Simulated assay, not measured.
Amino acid sequence: MIEASYGLPLVAATGTTGMVGRRAKELFPELGWDPLAVDITDQAAVEAAVSATPAAVIINLAAYTDVSGARQQSGDKDGSCYRINVHGAGNIARACARAGKHFVQVSTDYVFEGDRQGPYLETDDGDARTDWYGVTKRDAEDLIKHADVGWAIVRVSFPYQRHSERKTDLVRRIAEQLRTGTITPDVSGPG
């Protein structure tokens, strides 16, 4: 752990070993990340981890991000996608409220259905109805907005990384499909 001023981390975070978490730590080492290696669906464990860290800000980077797997769980509020994305985020928000810490939820543009005529704004509430991954992330946002905690929500779209050992990101998936010929680029141009 890199220590911030006075030897204390500025932020503690769940999910620091995931794609977005690893990249955030690379880009912002000065934040003195304190990784919270905790099962976010376990309220007691989350309470203990949040109260034990000296960090004033807790960032939730942990999430169920397998969009195809989420679709297979569609409507299942007992499934791992809902438990991690909604209940897990709620557990952290409640623990932050009790410990007097600020909560940052990392979310996604999947919270939007995508059928709106005009552009979505960052101040818009999510309207996801059909994509279960988006619904769970929307429900998490709604829960956090109504929690008694200081909060911020950051929505990311199509994250990718310099090195991808564990999970194929969008850029590498497209490159592989082009390499194997499973998709081909449209080089005909407009019209």
Rank of each mutant, 00 (worst) to 15 (best):
H163K: 09
P119M: 14
D124A: 06
D109H: 00
D131V: 09
R83W: 02
G126D: 04
L61G: 12
P190A: 15
D131A: 07
D169M: 01
D78T: 12
T108W: 01
T41L: 09
E3D: 08
V38L: 04
L10V: 04
A44C: 05
G7K: 06
Y160E: 02
A49E: 12
I174Q: 03
I183D: 10
D109Q: 02
A97D: 02
I2G: 01
I183C: 05
V104C: 10
G114S: 10
H102G: 01
V171L: 15
G21R: 04
F28N: 13
V46G: 09
S157D: 14
G118D: 15
Q161R: 14
H146G: 07
L121P: 00
R116M: 12
I2E: 13
R129L: 14
D142V: 02
P35Q: 13
P119Y: 12
Y82C: 07
L143F: 12
I2S: 10
D124Y: 10
A52R: 10
E3N: 08
Y64E: 14
L27C: 07
D115Y: 11
S157I: 04
A99C: 01
V11E: 04
I2T: 11
K77Y: 10
R23L: 10
T123V: 05
R83D: 12
T53K: 04
L121F: 10
D169T: 06
K167C: 11
V46H: 13
E47T: 13
N85F: 03
E141A: 05
R71C: 03
Q117R: 14
K167D: 11
Q105G: 05
M19T: 07
Y120W: 09
Y82H: 15
W151K: 02
D131S: 05
V111I: 10
A49Y: 12
T14S: 11
R162W: 11
A4S: 10
T180N: 14
G150I: 00
D76F: 11
S188H: 13
T16R: 03
V187W: 13
D115M: 13
S164D: 10
T65N: 11
D139Y: 00
S51I: 00
R173L: 09
D124P: 06
D109T: 02
L10A: 08
A99D: 04
Y82R: 03
A49I: 06
A152P: 00
G100L: 04
L121N: 12
K145F: 02
T16C: 11
A24Q: 03
L36Y: 13
E141Y: 00
V104W: 04
A70S: 15
F112L: 06
Y6F: 12
V171K: 13
I144T: 12
V156L: 15
M19R: 09
Q73T: 01
R98A: 15
A63V: 00
A12Y: 02
D142Q: 14
T184V: 10
L10N: 05
D115W: 14
D76S: 05
Y6T: 09
G75V: 09
E30V: 06
D115F: 14
G181N: 06
G69V: 02
A4P: 00
D131F: 13
F103E: 12
R98M: 08
V171A: 14
A12L: 01
N85M: 09
M19H: 03
Q117C: 13
V111W: 02
T108P: 06
L178N: 05
S68Q: 12
V38Q: 04
D125F: 01
V46D: 08
R83C: 04
